[in-house]
């Protein structure tokens, strides 16, 4: 989908909280219509503040925000109609029935009841919740609750869908199915902005990525260009036999993890073939090989000055996410 008017235009956005904490330091951001866009950043970087301002749950201190060319201050009603938001926390009435939750939200957007019911059925079916329509919200599993919030965000068919950690805490199978669903609605023209701690999610889904840190945008480019900045990768190699002496290979910094595995740093200009030739010459048989970390994660660490240790506790790779 092409459109000259950006889905989101942010200029000089600043937010200072009552305790003088400056959460946003005058950020500029533009998301083109039809994009699948990731807003990444460590905890406290300003992601939620930005999203809160877009959804008018947080009042900005300075700056201009436009949704499809409509100013959120002077044309708030039109601007809000174009936004659908799925917050990170479950914020629906747990005592209401699933169908009522979605239909009520449609009513708040002025949709007639007949249309609201048909839209609710459409999205509840797509998200596998139609059979649960008469169940109370509190009886749903965590994954179902998350899907319910997506259905609720979509019921008025917004042009811009904002997802704050859409797959947090859901199992890997459901996460993959949600990815497919999000890809489908994006292909149908809905612009999507997501925040996520699963960097693999951003790498798989998003065409463009902005990284926010300490209230400032430190990177805003295409996913491809961002990954292109990665000039080295770290691989973990598992060997068939235990290594008595750790092999030193010139040009490939490496260190042992245990007798059966070691990690090696490979520059983008170097060849993996050369590494394997050198290992073969030393009689080392490699039985498996994997990336030490998600590629985007490595960039994220360098751009936000996160050390790997602190990141471990905050940024989950897909497997860690599954385990949690």
């Amino acid at each position: 989908m092409t459109n000259n008017i950006p889905a989101l235009s942010i200029r000089g956005l600043r937010k200072v909280y009552g305790n003088s904490f400056e959460a946003l330091k005058g950020i500029d951001l533009e998301v083109r219509a039809g994009d699948f866009f990731a807003l990444l950043g460590p905890n406290g970087a300003g992601k939620s503040t930005t999203i809160g301002i877009l959804c008018s749950l947080i009042q900005k201190s300075e700056g201009e925000v436009e949704i499809f060319g409509k100013n959120i201050d002077s044309q708030f009603s039109q601007a809000k109609k174009d936004i659908g938001v799925m917050p990170q926390e479950f914020n629906f009435n747990q005592f209401e029935k699933v169908l009522d939750i979605v239909v009520t939200q449609a009513g708040y957007y002025g949709l007639p009841r007949k249309l609201a019911l048909s839209r609710a059925e459409k999205y509840l079916r797509k998200l596998g919740l139609w059979d649960k329509r008469n169940d109370r919200g509190r009886t749903l599993s965590g994954g179902m609750k998350r899907r319910l919030m997506i259905a609720r965000a979509l019921v008025h068919e917004p042009r811009l869908l904002i997802l704050d950690e859409p797959t947090a805490g859901v199992d890997i199978e459901l996460r993959r199915s949600l990815w497919e669903f999000l890809k489908e609605i994006n292909e149908q023209g809905t612009t999507i902005i997501l925040t996520t701690h699963y960097l693999e999610e951003a790498e798989s889904l998003c065409r463009n990525i902005a990284i926010i840190d300490q209230g400032q945008i430190v990177e805003n480019t295409t996913t491809k260009a961002l990954l292109g900045q990665l000039n080295k990768e770290v691989f973990i190699l598992d060997t068939k036999e235990a290594l008595a002496d750790f092999p030193l290979i010139e040009g490939y910094p490496a260190h042992a993890i245990d007798p059966h595995s070691f990690e090696v740093e490979v520059d983008k200009a170097q060849s993996l073939n050369e590494l394997f030739v050198a290992l073969s010459e030393r009689g080392i048989h490699v039985v498996s090989m994997r990336n030490k970390a998600n590629r985007l994660e490595e960039l994220f660490i360098s751009m936000t000055n996160q050390d790997a240790q602190s990141l471990d506790s905050r940024v989950a790779t897909s497997d860690e996410g599954f385990a949690s």
Binding site: C55, S56, L57, K80, P87, N91, Y108, Y109, G110
Partner: peptide, 12 residues
């Protein structure tokens, strides 16, 4: 419970 956000994010 945060349900008020359903109304606050809407154009109501």
């Amino acid at each position: 419970a945060g349900n008020i956000e359903e109304m606050l994010v809407s154009p109501m």
